[in-house]
Design a protein around this nucleic acid. Sequence first.
DNA 1: ACTGAAATATGTCGGACTAATAATCGAGTC
DNA 2: GACTCGATTATTAGTCCGACATATTTCAGT
Lengths: 246, 246
Amino acid sequence: MMQDEGQDNEGEKPKRGTGRRLHGAIAHKLGSAIVSGEYAPGDKLEAEVAFSEALNVSRSAYREAVQVLAAKGLVESRTKAGTRVLPRSRWNLLDPDVLAWAFTGEPDIEFIRNLFELRAIVEPAAARLAAERRTKDDLKIMKAALAEMRQKTLATDAGRSADRDFHNAILHATGNDALIVLSASIGAAVAWTTQFKQRSRTLPRNPIPDHVRVYDAIVAGDGDAASEAMRLLVDLALDDTRSSMG
Amino acid sequence: MMQDEGQDNEGEKPKRGTGRRLHGAIAHKLGSAIVSGEYAPGDKLEAEVAFSEALNVSRSAYREAVQVLAAKGLVESRTKAGTRVLPRSRWNLLDPDVLAWAFTGEPDIEFIRNLFELRAIVEPAAARLAAERRTKDDLKIMKAALAEMRQKTLATDAGRSADRDFHNAILHATGNDALIVLSASIGAAVAWTTQFKQRSRTLPRNPIPDHVRVYDAIVAGDGDAASEAMRLLVDLALDDTRSSMG
DNA sequence: ACTGAAATATGTCGGACTAATAATCGAGTC
DNA sequence: GACTCGATTATTAGTCCGACATATTTCAGT
């Protein structure tokens, strides 16, 4: 699942990858640049006409891209005043796209720590609710994800995808839409950090037992055990990630 | 802080309020319609040309509005296939705009319950972190918000705003960006539900003591107490809200 | 210091053209 | 004859262009 990096020839002409729309490609390019700090909050973007010309795209396409960024809280446009990058506090950092953009460059260690802190808060609580409310279908999905994960390992895309599926299934089993949307954010964080861990030379611990403990507790309907097992899982995952980043 | 309801004459011509851009108004109109269930997931929106004509706006303005909705996961457009409403699971329900749209109509009881469940998970944990990490500035802001809240009461906009400020200050004091972004969502939920409670005839309990307990614990740097006090606060708030909805 | 005119960047408009793809139709096959 | 597969067509979103409207900043003039 390669990103499209490396195809911007000298910073111009954002080409769209397969199926990607032009304004989407522009949004991706600008969004990444902003989130990665290439533009600082308060910075003014070049004027629409000039910028769109520089990118060799129509003003319409450029504007549609900016609307997307504005919708995600990255920028704000005002007549005559131009388009400015908003302070980081206004960014929708949990938006899946923004999260993806945040991980296009070298990831910010501090931000990863923050995401893990969020996971450490949400996922144990979610596991508890899941243990109390899971349906047979939920369990089936979790079991399948676990099996896939065990077979493919986290070294493969399929394995990481299964890992995400497992965590998503737990969030989903809570039946709480507000928690379920977080699965998109948390899932993205899990995926990227897992891949990051994998990159480092040292092969980390086998994650399966941790996951199995959570699964067993949810099957048993034991909320306390599920919460505790998940807390442990996230803690250990953070340890692994931390050690692979120095 | 009135909404702009009542200005759509017979479902056509979305007029923009002061300062509001046209595409923003269209996005608001369509977004509310989608979130409130006027369009069901899978439904196809009328074709761009036809729809924009029906709304008496240019196709560009309409398209920019749709880009915003797409950025928030509400719709997806594909060439020739049209623009379709995505399943609710893909909506960025925690996006402040989406949240606002969700509360333009009669609020969904189940969804409010879900938001409270999220609050009950996140806010106690945040209060604990805040107790451990708060700066003098954080405390000053909380104290000011508390004073304002006590003076204006929750019956006024200013009072509700202070309530939100208090909760935001706690999230902010965690120093965790991922949690801070949630303040926009949680804050919105707090505001709307508080207003909703206020609407009902029975004057609810005085919320100040609950808040003071949280504040005192954070000042004392007592994480356990802060977490517990916040847990109680959210529980009581849910009780109040529940009883005012039947 | 205040007022108002001009400059300028975003916002909106309309229409033309492109590209992607769902739907249709027809040739070829079983 | 029914069915599968492939080319054709029709439709709809995507992109481009150029003009004008609107809102603010800026600055000149009093």
